[in-house]
Each structure stands twice: as C-alpha cells, then as structure tokens.
C-alpha cells in the first residue's frame, strides 16, 4: 500500500467503494479488485502470490488470462496511487 495513508471501504453486495486518504479520491471496485486491494492492504505480495490469494478468495481458476488481468489491476492501482512498489 502507499505508505502513510489509509483506505476506507464500504461494500454493498458485490461492489465496493474505497476512499484513499492520500489522494482524497474514491474508487468503485468489483469483487476481484476489492479482494486484490484488501490482500495488498494486509501485506506486500508478489504478483504470483496475489494471483493465488485472489483466485482462492474469488474461486477463479488462476489461468494465464487471470494472471494477466491481475497484472493490469496492479498497474491500475499503482497509477491511481493506491499502491507502491515494495523495496526491502
């Protein structure tokens, strides 16, 4: 996650809104995006780890297409300032 900032959530059915205290922006997330962002909120993960977690949580086959969609999701999160690359 972007350090020093919080995410505030509200979920209705299979959609969520999330407010980022850093940017002040609010985003609409579907189940997969929500699952991915929640996983990253807990700890830094590699793409492979994130694919595994989200596929389990959402009961989706982690095939190459899913891997690609998670990769794109990570890029979107990064572009929106919701996450940043973790360095040891």
């Amino acid at each position: 996650m972007t350090s020093g900032f919080e995410l505030l959530w509200h979920t209705w059915d299979d959609e969520s809104v999330v407010y980022h205290t850093g940017s002040g922006d609010t985003h609409l997330l579907d189940t997969i995006a929500m699952s991915a962002l929640m996983a990253l909120e807990n700890k830094a993960l590699t793409v492979a780890e994130l694919v595994e977690k989200v596929s389990k949580h959402c009961a989706i086959n982690p095939d190459p297409a899913f891997f690609e969609s998670i990769t794109q999701l990570i890029s979107s999160f990064n572009r929106l300032g919701l996450i940043e690359r973790y360095s040891h």
């Binding site: 509200h10 979920t11 209705w12 059915d13 959609e15 969520s16 809104v17 609010t26 609409l28």
Partner: peptide, 11 residues
C-alpha cells in the same frame, strides 16, 4: 440500482 454505482455517480 447498484448502491456502489449510485455512490460514485452522486459523488
């Protein structure tokens, strides 16, 4: 109507 989408539209 979706509540989350209503939220975003209203915001």
């Amino acid at each position: 109507r979706s509540k989350a989408q209503t939220f975003i539209y209203a915001a």
